[in-house]
């Protein structure tokens, strides 16, 4: 584990915050103090339920949403202060694949035009012919038959549309890709095809992913490291194997227990039922955000934020229970 730490992270997020201003002066703390290191060729999974701020985090990291405060270091360089021109230059290396392949593609552009668009914007090649040639090789790379080059997005099924989105994200030879729920809108058999494709591309092109999802089995499958988010904060972070073998935070445990497993041996096991629902992180008060739904809640939980505790090497848990043990 410590061997990893000697390398420079490709992306380092330090105390990143994104607060949205609401009507009446209220503030929604969508992302609230996230720290994360992503090393080259690593896949970091970010999981959480809807409204936990995982998509906002993904977009803030590549500054599609301007963060409120904090730092984002890319190869050790703070990209928060970069001006428009320099940031545009850097966008080639930082890309994103969106959840919904139905709404993230321009309906009036054909497949080849969608894939070529970024290359035209960044004047990647001198001629149109070269650009389109590269677009066709990208179609081969993502397993999209060349006969679809002149099709429009509405003519394709979800899996093929997602392949178009992936080809587009790859068109500028990125180093880092944020995958924002890329398989959630797809049927299981198609989901498996796309997951395999993403893993192959990671290997072949040496990519680094931040993989955002709400699906615990998908995140386990694809990630080296996993961060569990709850209401804008990281509640637990560990390597994939460690998190599933040894979950510590009450929220992580509930989340893992809530998954219906396709296996009869767990049929009679009851789910750990969490009381209530995810609330809104609007004008949050100090204290653990999970306290209201937690069975282990004590007075301390409602008074101050539990900071992260390293319970074992590279396994961080933000819970007062851990502090007592340490």
């Amino acid at each position: 584990m410590s061997a990893i730490d000697t390398r420079t992270p490709l992306i380092e997020i330090i105390d990143l915050k994104k607060h949205f201003k609401l009507n009446g002066g209220a503030k929604l703390h969508a992302v609230d103090g996230i720290n994360l290191k992503i090393y080259p060729k690593e896949t970091v999974g970010v999981v959480g339920e809807s409204g936990c701020g995982k998509s906002t985090l993904g977009r803030s990291v590549i500054r599609l949403i301007e963060p409120t405060s904090g730092q984002i270091l890319y190869n050790g360089r703070n990209i928060m202060k970069l001006g428009g021109g320099k940031m545009r230059e850097l966008r080639k290396e930082l890309q994103i694949i969106f959840q919904d392949p139905y709404s993230s593609l321009d309906p009036r552009k054909s497949v080849i035009e969608v894939i070529a668009e970024y290359m035209f914007i960044h004047r990647r090649y001198k001629t149109r012919a070269e650009t389109y040639h590269r677009a066709v090789t990208l179609m081969d790379l993502v397993g999209l038959a060349r006969r679809y080059a002149n099709s429009y997005p509405h003519e394709l099924d979800g899996g093929r549309r997602q392949r178009v989105g992936i080809a587009r994200a790859l068109s500028l030879n990125p180093k880092f890709i944020v995958c924002d729920e890329p398989v959630s809108a797809l049927d299981v058999s198609i989901q498996a095809q796309i997951l395999n494709l993403l893993m192959d591309l990671e290997e072949e092109l040496g990519l680094t992913y931040m993989f955002i999802t709400h699906d615990m089995s998908v995140v386990k499958h694809i990630s080296n490291k996993i961060m569990v988010m709850y209401l804008g904060q990281c509640v637990e972070m560990a390597t994939s194997d460690e998190l599933f073998a040894n979950p510590q935070h009450p929220y992580t445990r509930a989340l893992l227990s809530a998954i219906p497993v396709a296996d009869l041996s767990t049929r009679d096991k009851d789910f750990v039922i969490l009381r209530g629902e995810v609330s809104n992180p609007i004008n949050v008060k100090p204290g653990c955000r999970f306290a209201k739904r937690c069975d282990y809640c004590t007075e301390a939980c409602t008074l101050a934020d539990p900071g992260p505790v390293e319970v074992s090497p590279d396994h961080f848990v933000s819970c007062f229970l851990m502090k007592q043990e340490v």
Binding site: V188, Q191, A192, L195, N196, S217, H221, V261, D263
Partner: peptide, 16 residues
Amino acid sequence: GSIPSLTSRATRLTPI
């Protein structure tokens, strides 16, 4: 074969 397993660590899924 398409469902990623929670218990074992398979490297690749076997989709249809």
